[in-house]
Structure formats: C-alpha cells, structure tokens
C-alpha cells in the first residue's frame, strides 16, 4: 500500500469515528445527565429514585410494556395469517383484497382520527387500552410483508402436509411460520417499537394519569416547570423510556436489519 493510500484510509476511519461520535453524543449526554446530580458531581442514582418514588414512572413502564407486547402479538399473528392466505391460496376476491390493501397503504392514518375518536366515544373505549391495541391490529404493511415472505414457502411441502392429513391451520403454524422466522422477528420488533413510541393516538385516548404510556407521561413531565429546571430528572426518565426498546433491538437486531432491507431490494 502506498503512502497516499495509508493516509486516506486513516482519514476515512477518523471521519467515521467522528460521525459516530456526533450520532452517539446526544445519547451519551442523556446518560451522563441521568446519572449526575450526586454531591460534587459524582455519579448517583438519585434521579431514578426520585422518579420511581414521586412519579408513576414504574406504572407507565408497565403500561407501555403491556400495551406494546399485546399490540405486537396481535398484529404479528393477524398479519402472518392474512399474508399466508394471500400468498398461498387462490380464492374469490383475492385480487380485490390486494388492490384495497395497496390503496390503504398510502392512506395517511391521521385522516382516520376524527372518525376513530367518534367511534371510540360511541363504544366507550376512551381511556381504555383496548383502543390502543385492537384498532391497529390490522396492519396493511404487515400483511403485504408476510405475503411477500410466504410466497417462498414451497407448495409441494404444503400439499405433502395435506396428504398426511395435516389441517390448514397447522400447515400455517407448523410449516409456513418457521420458514419465515426472520420476518416474524423483524416485524415483531417493528410493531413493538411503533407501539412503544406511539404518541398521537394514545394522547387522544388516554386521560387518567395512571394509565399513561411512557411517551405521554414523558411529554407531560417535560412540560412541567420543575422538570425544565431539573434536567437530570427528565433525562433519567427518557433513559428509562428508551432502554427497553433498545434491549429488545439488541436481541433481535440481525432479523430486524435483514427484514428492513429485504423489502427494498426486492421492490
């Protein structure tokens, strides 16, 4: 390698380190602030203790976990079943269903808000978790994603299963689902994170302070004058809010990145 090559390689690596520093700096600063506040600038858990004692932070955490897990489970199951039906069966109405799905994909969900709110009011789902979990259970994007993935499941395998007397439901669960494992992982994570980070709809639906999910609770805290003054508390709350999603991502990251990019490269 000539000298110019060595220099440019060094420069590129320094550039990457610098950019990564800029990307990570806000997060590092958040962590620093969250653990700060001890006497003489020492690290301390004081902020976390105050949060868990004085604010329903622990409850919001549990609420968020419950809502996000339930939502992810529901939407993955329904999307995988729907996608399987679209990928592996010929039936009357299939063409229409696919046209409706692709059309709905472009619809901005915010246009539904007035109608949905009115419906929630009629069926008395205001301030309930059902309103956060059930209406979003049908994901157009998820069904199309699973349809795309399940086309690759060999028809011969399914026919052989039928010959052996395997029911249709068991073919889906026992044969097709294991074959699209990475997609299940990726979509579970995507759904969990979208529910975990959701703000607009929960903000409209939730009223009782104790029922808040983390984004609603945190947005509320950040508006309180006391919290503007005590930034360490706010950053501790943000850290607690970001951590569970980040942990799940680290566990499922290989599936997630593969799932994210497979759609684009094919399309």
């Amino acid at each position: 390698m000539n000298r110019r090559g060595v220099c440019s390689a060094l420069g590129l690596n320094l550039l990457v380190w610098g950019l990564a520093g800029v990307a990570v700096l806000p997060l590092a600063w958040m962590v620093g602030m969250a653990f700060g506040g001890g006497p003489d600038g020492a690290w301390s858990l004081e902020n976390f203790k105050i949060l868990l004692k004085d604010e329903p932070m622990g409850r919001w955490l549990v609420n968020s976990l419950f809502v996000s897990c339930s939502y992810a489970f529901l939407v993955v199951m329904l999307s995988a079943m729907g996608g399987y039906a679209l990928a592996k069966y010929q039936f009357f109405g299939k063409g229409l269903a696919q046209v409706v799905l692709v059309g709905a994909l472009l619809l901005p969900p915010q246009v539904l808000l007035p109608g949905s709110y009115e419906l929630m009011d009629r069926i008395r789902w205001i301030d309930s978790y059902a309103a956060l979990i059930v209406p979003g259970g049908v994901s157009v994007f998820g069904m199309l994603l699973f349809r795309q993935a399940m086309i690759a499941v060999p028809d011969d395998l399914l026919s052989a299963g039928r010959m052996d007397g395997c029911g249709e439901f068991r073919l889906w669960w026992g044969v097709a689902m294991p074959m699209v494992g990475p997609m299940v992982g990726a979509f579970t994570l995507m759904s969990f994170i979208s529910a975990w980070n959701a703000y607009l709809w929960p903000q409209i639906i939730l009223q009782d302070h104790g029922k808040f999910t983390l984004p609603i609770g945190l947005a509320n805290l950040s508006g309180l004058p006391g919290y503007q003054a005590n930034q360490g508390l706010l950053m501790a709350a943000t850290l607690l809010s970001v951590l569970p999603a980040a942990a799940l991502f680290l566990i499922l990251q290989r599936d997630f990145v593969a799932g994210l990019s497979s759609g684009a490269v094919k399309g």
């Binding site: 990570v24 806000p26 997060l27 994170i193 980070n197 703000y199 947005a219 970001v242 991502f249």
Partner: peptide, 19 residues
C-alpha cells in the same frame, strides 16, 4: 451505532433535543 438513533421515538428525541 448509526442505526441506533432510529429506535428512539420522536417524543423521546424531542425531549432530548429540547434540552
């Protein structure tokens, strides 16, 4: 490292950047 910021929800990003 570069992708990790995408996981932080908009509300949390806003709280961090507000400070």
């Amino acid at each position: 490292a570069f992708f990790s910021t995408y996981l932080v929800g908009q509300v949390f990003v806003a709280v961090i950047f507000a400070l």
